[in-house]
């Protein structure tokens, strides 16, 4: 039992941190520009594919650095030449623009890299076990991923709270016009934030690719969950996104690990239901992929502003 708890916790945290890398960019872009970027997960996919292609030429570590920069640059271009022009036509136009962009990126990826998964793997030496507990190996790569994620979180916090750029971003979050009137170049700031958010998604892709699978469907499968994280955490709240990511990561892994059905739980509370019924016989493990969305519905009903959100939507 103990080993399940330990490894589920580790796995849950790892998955949660990956979700946070993805959703931090999304929530930053949303809070700053009011744009719900539907193509965000597509940038995550691009990160994985770029790193795969570059990794074959220059190795894993340089790719880890270069791929997010490339994705970020691409994101900045999209903001400057696409989103900025669409912006004048209101939020619906922006939404549709990013929606279309997601499709375009999906199709491009299939054209360039094919419709089946590519064999993007971490370097061999990182597949060795970092430690072995109860006969289960925990690979070096997973340790490295956790380190990168934590490092990214600290760097992001430092950037937003302790630097001048961070101050400008935070000011522009709430008082965009005022920052503009004070002589700062707000459009350039927007471009930077959009690019930076995409770069974070790209970084998530670089490490998420070997961890999960690098295939054209990876954006579609993770996309909805990232939105759940942002809504549950509270629109535009970075700390909220952090808590929500970990929460969803842990809930999802623990649901798989617990060997119980709905009836088992109800019966434990003194109710008397059929353990093999149509609904009550459903195991928690088979509910696991649904949990983020159940959480989304519950949050929207009982706490519409999310865990840490300040604004009522």
């Amino acid at each position: 039992m103990l080993e399940i708890v330990i490894f589920s916790t580790l796995n849950g945290i790892l998955y949660g941190l990956l979700l946070f890398m993805l959703s931090s960019g999304l929530t930053l872009i949303f809070s700053m520009m009011g744009v719900l970027n539907f193509a965000h997960a597509s940038f995550y996919m691009l990160g994985a594919y770029f790193a795969y292609t570059m990794g074959m030429e220059i190795g894993f570590w340089p790719a880890l650095l270069l791929a997010p920069i490339l994705v970020g640059g691409l994101g900045a271009m999209v903001e400057k030449f696409g989103l900025r022009r669409v912006h004048d036509n209101g939020h619906v136009a922006e939404l549709l623009f990013t929606f279309g962009l997601a499709y375009v990126i999906d199709e491009l990826v299939q054209l360039i890299w094919g419709t089946v998964a590519v064999s993007y793997r971490e370097p061999d030496y990182m597949r060795e076990p970092l430690f072995t507990l109860f006969g289960t190996d925990y690979s070096i790569f997973r340790g490295v991923v956790i380190l990168i994620a934590v490092f990214m979180f600290i760097a992001l916090w430092f950037l937003l709270k302790k630097t001048r750029v961070g101050m400008m971003i935070r000011a522009a979050l709430t008082h965009g016009n005022m920052v503009g009137h004070l002589g700062h170049n707000v459009p350039r700031l927007f471009m930077g934030v959009f690019g930076f958010g995409c770069a974070l998604a790209g970084l998530a892709g670089v490490i998420g690719g070997p961890l999960l699978a690098t295939e054209p469907g990876m954006a579609v499968t993770l996309g909805p969950i990232v939105f759940v994280v942002v809504v549950v955490g509270g629109m535009g709240s970075l700390i909220g996104a952090f808590y929500a990511s970990l929460l969803i990561g842990l809930i999802q892994t623990f649901f798989v690990a617990i060997d119980a059905s709905i009836a088992d739980i109800l019966n434990a509370f003194g109710m008397n239901v059929d353990p093999y019924g149509e609904v009550t016989g459903i195991t928690l493990a088979s509910l696991a992929p649904m949990t983020p969305f159940i959480l989304l519905v519950l949050i929207l009903i009982f706490r519409p502003r999310g865990l840490m959100g300040e604004l009522e939507p």
């Binding site: 399940i4 589920s8 796995n11 961890l211 696991a288």
Partner: peptide
């Protein structure tokens, strides 16, 4: 996408 929780279960 992530089979690790299932694998820990098999392992234990």
């Amino acid at each position: 996408k992530d089979f690790t929780p299932y694998v820990s279960k098999i392992q234990s």
